[in-house]
């Protein structure tokens, strides 16, 4: 009896010691996980291997089906994507395009180290890998590199008072048969990232619902429906395809800082350096007064 009381007292003391710490920390996402509800490993689809955006798609445009002129490549003068933008955001986009046409709208990834951001990350060059597990799916991109984590373990998004905008956002998913359906929120927008190099941006209030599935043994499809109550007049659905590369294909390092011979000037101009680090460009903007003006 004495022994029991001692143990009980010790337990109470321990609980008291831990109580403040527990009260200060919210229940972690792991608390929501119920392993018995996870999809069995054997029922998950085979998305192994290396994938790249299906050939024939004009480079870089977020929605090539709406590129004007048709087949236009993002980053080239005069090319735009006909997104359902509100008048205010259409004007903002037009201003960005004018900078693109003048080569004064640098891609944020040119600075090396900035992630592509979601949903742009689903439409970039180089290799993709899709690592499917019951509790989460990782989308790994060679370019960048980027990692998108899609949680399918039953957790929800972080609560509103704990979430903050990031380049990759917060992705929560579930399986509908062999289709991974996930919702991404809390992404940065205009001023931090772009949708493509035509200068297309979103407000940072966007929500993206993505359906990822195989449409053929070696073809994956992502169907992204973007809702942005600030920048878009209606939900905008974009579909991209990824082709599985031959068995045995590999993905390699992509080190943006290894030999980056394209620095960006303070005015947003993309320079080209020779092997000694001297710029070869014949026309370079004068530095703005007051030093650097990062774009």
């Amino acid at each position: 009896m004495i022994r029991f009381s001692f143990l009980a007292a010790a337990a109470l003391a321990a609980a008291a010691l831990h109580a403040p710490a527990q009260a200060a920390q919210p229940a972690g996402p792991a608390a929501a996980v119920d392993p018995s509800k996870l999809k069995a490993f054997a029922t998950l689809p085979d998305w192994s291997g290396v994938w790249t955006l299906a050939p024939g798609v004009p480079g870089g445009s977020f929605d090539p089906s709406l590129t004007v002129p048709k087949g236009g490549q993002s980053g080239l003068a005069g090319v735009r994507v006909d997104a359902p933008l509100t008048p205010e955001w259409a004007a903002k986009y037009a201003a960005n395009r004018a900078k693109v046409d003048a080569d004064r709208f640098p891609d944020p990834v040119s600075f090396c180290g900035t992630p592509s951001g979601f949903p742009r990350v689903l439409t970039i060059p180089d290799g993709y890998e899709f690592v499917v597990r019951p509790e989460q799916t990782w989308i790994l991109t060679e370019n960048g590199p980027n990692v998108i984590r899609v949680y399918t373990d039953g957790r929800g998004h972080l609560p509103p008072d704990e979430i903050w905008a990031t380049f990759s956002g917060d992705s929560i998913g579930h399986w509908e048969g062999e289709t991974l359906v996930f919702e991404t929120i809390a992404m940065v927008g205009d001023g931090s990232t772009i949708l493509d190099r035509t200068g297309l941006t979103l407000s940072g209030k966007q929500k993206v619902t993505t359906r990822l599935r195989k449409t053929a043994p070696d073809m994956l499809e992502s169907q992204m429906t973007i809702e942005d109550p600030v920048a878009l007049t209606r939900p905008w659905t974009v579909t991209r395809l990824y082709k599985r590369q031959p068995v045995g294909s590999r993905v390699f390092d992509y080190v943006c800082t290894e030999n980056n011979r394209n620095p960006i000037t303070a005015t947003g101009q993309t320079l080209t350096l020779d092997t000694s680090g001297n710029q070869i460009d014949r026309k370079v903007d004068p530095a703005p007064e007051g030093g650097k003006a990062a774009p």
Binding site: G59, S74, D107, V109, N143, R197
Partner: peptide
């Protein structure tokens, strides 16, 4: 040849005359 169409993953294409 088809696959080699440059994508230029890292920066804008605006400096080149296609």
């Amino acid at each position: 040849a088809f696959a080699a169409v440059p994508a230029l993953a890292h920066h804008s294409f605006a400096m080149f005359d296609r």
